[in-house]
């Protein structure tokens, strides 16, 4: 079976089917990644843009990497950033500042606590680059080096960011509480 890099090389020579084959291999992973980041509806809106952006930028692909998935995550992340930048205020984006000001650690002791909400609050306080590395490693099963490739940063930097993210999460009151009680 041809590697992704070989298929991308063929697509650069005019074989468009080869690029579709690359997309077919990774579309579920990238679709789920987008859905985790922006929800299913927005993911469906953005997915086509990701493939078009990947196709248009395939000449920049480093053919020394046989596996294209980290690169596609990078393309998807860039499209998401552009999407967030261009989306007007009237998109359904809740006011995080308001939610954060309502934060009260005590409900976390309740066993009925909503894990997702609490964990997302803790994640929201991480630095963006820490959150990106953490998400790529925890949710997308990438290695730290691959996460670095997605974000175009050295593997050592990605490792440091992951370490910082995990430490900050462990020390977050929401996570401390979640790790102490049964969760839903």
């Amino acid at each position: 079976m041809s590697s992704d890099a070989e298929l991308i090389g063929r697509s650069l020579r005019g074989d468009t089917d080869a690029f579709v084959e690359v997309i077919s291999r990774h579309e579920t992973a990238i679709g789920n990644y987008l859905a985790r980041r922006v929800g299913r509806q927005a993911a469906e809106d953005v997915l086509g843009d990701v493939w078009v952006a990947a196709y248009e930028s395939r000449a920049t692909y480093d053919l020394s990497y046989p596996e294209a998935r980290p690169w596609l995550y990078g393309v998807a992340l860039n499209r998401l950033r552009r999407h967030w930048r261009s989306e007007p205020a009237e998109e359904p984006t809740p006011d995080l500042a308001r939610a954060a000001s309502d934060w009260d650690p005590w409900p976390a002791v309740d066993a009925r606590v909503d894990t997702q909400t609490l964990l997302r609050r803790a994640l929201a306080r991480l630095k963006p680059e820490e959150r990106e590395v953490l998400g790529l490693v925890a949710w997308e099963d990438l290695t730290v080096a691959e996460a670095g490739r997605v974000l175009d940063i050295p593997a050592g930097t990605a490792r440091r960011l992951l370490h910082q993210a995990r430490k900050a999460l462990r020390e977050a009151p929401e996570v401390v509480a979640l790790l102490q009680v049964p969760t839903t």
Partner: peptide, 24 residues
């Protein structure tokens, strides 16, 4: 705990088709 957040509804099969059509 992070992994608990990883399960989300995936895009629909129709959405994947539309995205491929956009690419093509």
């Amino acid at each position: 705990l992070m992994k608990k957040l990883s399960d989300v509804p995936s895009p629909s099969p129709e959405a994947y088709d539309r995205a491929r059509t956009a690419l093509q």
